[in-house]
Design a protein around this nucleic acid. Sequence first.
DNA 1: TACTAAGTTGATTATTTTTGTCAACAATTA
DNA 2: TAATTGTTGACAAAAATAATCAACTTAGTA
Lengths: 147, 147
Amino acid sequence: MKLSTRGRYGVRALLDLALHQGEGLILLKDIARRQEVSLPYLEHLITPLIAAGLVKSTRGARGGVLLLKPPSEIKLSEVVQLLEGSIAPTDCVNNPDTCHRSDFCATRDIWIDMKKAMIQVLDGMTLQDLADRQREKVQPEKEMYHI
Amino acid sequence: MKLSTRGRYGVRALLDLALHQGEGLILLKDIARRQEVSLPYLEHLITPLIAAGLVKSTRGARGGVLLLKPPSEIKLSEVVQLLEGSIAPTDCVNNPDTCHRSDFCATRDIWIDMKKAMIQVLDGMTLQDLADRQREKVQPEKEMYHI
DNA sequence: TACTAAGTTGATTATTTTTGTCAACAATTA
DNA sequence: TAATTGTTGACAAAAATAATCAACTTAGTA
């Protein structure tokens, strides 16, 4: 039941962008450095976010990326599902046809409930909320991590 | 965020035992057949359940396994965590020391909330509840799956 | 006692997923 | 035109997962 680095790093990257909201284009290189993620890997994580319209990218010198929507309008449920695919604990939750037992499987109901509970948590948190929390946490001497 | 087969098959195996509660020793071979799991693999899944005292096993001819506690006293949270290990979405949830960012990481709070939500669902469901649900579901012509 | 049935354990292997790296490419700016 | 920056796809290393196999132990029974 672990989240992969895609989800973890991806959310951190977007949180980084939310923290720098309004500062214009942000370099992937800088996000990679602050969030301690390899640049080539981050490039792959940012791609689906661009495709989904959450992030806008500009190539070339003076290029970079920025959030296309206000952080308050980006829910973590959207982000995590974009990066991880469905967070259903089993395939049968999304598609009963993946298991011929689905019709009469009691355990499937539980996995469905688990997915709902997870989505509910992530639905209740936006990038803005996350950025606010982050600003509360960071002590001055640790500021390097979000500059 | 997928459950592994350990969790899925293991819960099914225990559900099978709950459905046959009171019938004495049940053969692993029969559980494997009904739950469509390979016997050698099931043997490995049952081991930690025996070690944890949920299941009692008897070797030799006329041997088999059975639930040591009433199904109503076995919560799915216990079972899943036994089989899957912690269901925390990240390692840092259980042990902040696995990541040096834990102290000032806002995303970690989210993963903690997710774990709590998942546990809550699994805490609210016992093997007895599951068995009751299963009995409601199974139509006569599908009975083969729990005999 | 010998034989068979059943669970136990550890070694090993196959497969899949994850986590990246690398290089060629495209677009933009100075 | 040169430098910078994001884009894409191919590829590979590493780890986790999902088994399988074989030797072993225990218990019942003829």
